[in-house]
């Protein structure tokens, strides 16, 4: 029963997936479901949120902005650091001290890993990490988790096939961490040199999570309930390397003939060519619904962060 939600996020920071446990994630999923079906127009009434993006962003920034407005709040801030005092050499520490005195919460995207944690040590209001370098992007993981739940009606008993840049992709690292609280198994398919880091393999072993490593994408597809595609950053490879290494890991419509009927494809976006456009119109494509869920996930998180006892309805 959703009305029993335990709000441990009130007046807290959202910095990393490591601060969540299974119960908190389940409560969050219910809160997002409520936002999607009912909304909560006055949850941020009278609140001002600082949106501090010191690195480019499209979906994350806009979905946060829209989420705040749909909850009745106001947003101030900047979408790059060109017109901020950081260009004059102001430290992030000083900037966070000042901005936190103006607003009720701060959404921070910053190119340096650990920037959100630092901000949380200095800010008098909650910090939401909207991506700190290649470290964490917890709101993306929450929306990914919700999209898996929404499309499969469960988070247990699923086989998650992760494809692409598993070495540098922070979204896939965080998702693996979050899904480790549930009874899932993973299949990893990645080009040579972009495989999952050893420390994450050790974590899976430590948590007794089953996983397999496949070298052939098409052979792994029939087992998958979810295919989580990631972008391979072309700038990491020269053109010849890219063609040679990456082409076998691009998802084509023809590869999906033996896919399970419930299988859904997710991608944190932006995509390049890793998902063939022809897949967009198949029932397997779920990445645009996933992007939409970003707005509802951020609505739920903001509401929990700034309302000790929101008047949640009851969902059964």
């Amino acid at each position: 029963m959703f009305s029993n939600i335990q709000n441990q996020l009130f007046n807290n920071h959202i910095l990393s997936l490591s601060q969540f446990d299974r119960m908190m994630l389940e409560d969050l999923i219910q809160a997002i479901l409520y936002m999607k079906t009912h909304g909560m127009p006055n949850a941020l009434s009278g609140k001002v949120i600082g949106s501090c993006f010191m690195e480019p962003s499209t979906r994350t920034r806009l979905s946060f902005d829209v989420a705040i407005k749909r909850l009745g709040g106001h947003v101030i801030g900047f979408d790059n650091n060109e017109n901020t005092s950081s260009r004059k050499g102001e430290s992030l520490s000083d900037m966070m001290c000042v901005i936190s005195s103006y607003v009720d919460a701060i959404i921070l995207r910053h190119p340096k890993e650990g920037s959100a944690y630092l901000a949380s040590q200095l800010s008098s209001v909650p910090i939401i990490n909207a991506g700190d370098g290649s470290n964490q992007h917890p709101t993306q993981t929450v929306l990914d988790l919700f999209s898996i739940y929404e499309s499969q009606n469960t988070l247990d008993g699923l086989t998650i096939l992760c494809v692409g840049d598993l070495k540098y992709g922070r979204t896939v690292h965080s998702l693996i961490h979050a899904l480790s609280y549930f009874k899932v198994q993973f299949i990893f398919v990645a080009p040579e040199g972009l495989q999952l880091p050893q420390y994450l393999i050790e974590d899976l072993d430590h948590n007794h999570i089953a996983y397999e490593v496949y070298s052939h994408l098409e052979k792994a597809i029939p087992q998958a309930d979810i295919i989580y595609m990631t972008r391979i950053q072309q700038e990491r490879l020269d053109d010849t390397e890219y063609q040679y290494l990456v082409t076998p890991y691009l998802l084509k419509k023809a590869m999906l003939k033996k896919a399970k009927s419930n299988m859904k494809i997710l991608h944190p976006l932006p995509r390049l060519n890793e998902i063939e456009l022809a897949i967009d119109h198949t029932p397997f494509a779920y990445y645009f619904q996933q992007a939409t869920n970003g707005m509802y996930a951020r609505m739920a998180l903001l509401t929990l962060l700034l309302n000790k006892q929101a008047h949640w309805g009851t969902l059964t």
């Binding site: 430290s91 992030l92 520490s93 910053h110 190119p111 340096k112 650990g114 920037s115 630092l118």
Partner: peptide, 14 residues
């Protein structure tokens, strides 16, 4: 010192 050169500890007085 944190070996990760992109860690914020290298940029701020912390």
């Amino acid at each position: 010192a944190c070996p990760n050169l992109n860690c914020i500890t290298h940029d701020e007085a912390i």
